[in-house]
Amino acid sequence: FPLNHKKARTDPCSINVENKVVSHLLGAEPEKVFAMPDPALPDDDIKALTTLCDLADRELVLNIGWAKHLPGFSSLSLPDQMRLLQSAWMEILLLRVVFRSLDAEDKLVFAEDYVMDAGQAKLAGLLELHTAILQLVRKYRSMGLEREEFVTLKAIALANSDSMHIEDMEAVQRLQDCVHEALQDYERTHHGEDPRRAGKLIMTLPLLRQTAAKAVQHFCSIKQDGRVPMHKLFLELLEAN
C-alpha cells in the first residue's frame, strides 16, 4: 500500500484531469521582470547588451523557480534537473520574449520597459538574432498562440531538452508524457475543430531550438569579447552550453 500510495501521489499525470496541469502551469508562470536600463550609461551597444544580460540573469532565477512547479520535475535527481535546465534555459527565455512580443509590430518585447525594433537591434549587433526571433513571433501570431499553449509548450521545451547524460531517462520520459498529454488534452477540449493543432505547435519547437542555439552562440562570443558585464548565473549557463 505505501508504495502504491507514493506512486499515485508522485505520478505527474495522476493530476492530468480537466487540464489541471495547464491550470497549474498558468499559476506557476513567473511574475513580470523589468529591464530598468541604467540611465547613467551612454546609449550604445554595450548598454543594450548589458541591459539584456542583466534582464536574462534575473529571468533565469525566476525560470529555475518555475521549473520546480512542473509536475514531476522536483522528483528528478538534482543532476537531472540541472541537465534539463542547462540545455533548455535559452529556449525558455526566448519563448517568454516571443510570447510577450505577439502583440507588438515587428518589435521584440524583452520587457515592458525594453522593446527593441530592428534598428535598435542592429545597433546592438543583434539584427540576425532579432530577425530569427521575429520569425517565431510571426509563426505563433499566425496560429493565435494562447497563454495556455505557451505555458505548456515551455514545459515541453524543458522536458524535451535532449540533454546528454540523463541518469533516469524513464523519469524524464514521464515528465515529457505528462506535459505532452496536457497539451493534447487542452487542444482536444479547446480546439476540437483543428485536430492537428497540438502537432503544429510541437512542430515549432525545432525553430525555437535553432534560434536558442544561435542566441547562446552569440552571447558566448560577446562573453569572450569581455566588454559586457555578465552576472554569474548567466555566465554559468552560457558555459554549460
Binding site: H24, G65, H69, F73, L85, E236
Partner: peptide, 20 residues
C-alpha cells in the same frame, strides 16, 4: 558540479514545489 554551483544552489533553495 562546482562549475555550476549557482544553478545547483537555486534548485535546492528556490521556491518549494506545490505538493501535487
Amino acid at each position: 558540479k562546482e562549475k555550476h554551483k549557482i544553478l545547483h544552489r537555486l534548485l535546492q533553495n528556490s521556491t518549494s514545489p506545490v505538493d501535487l
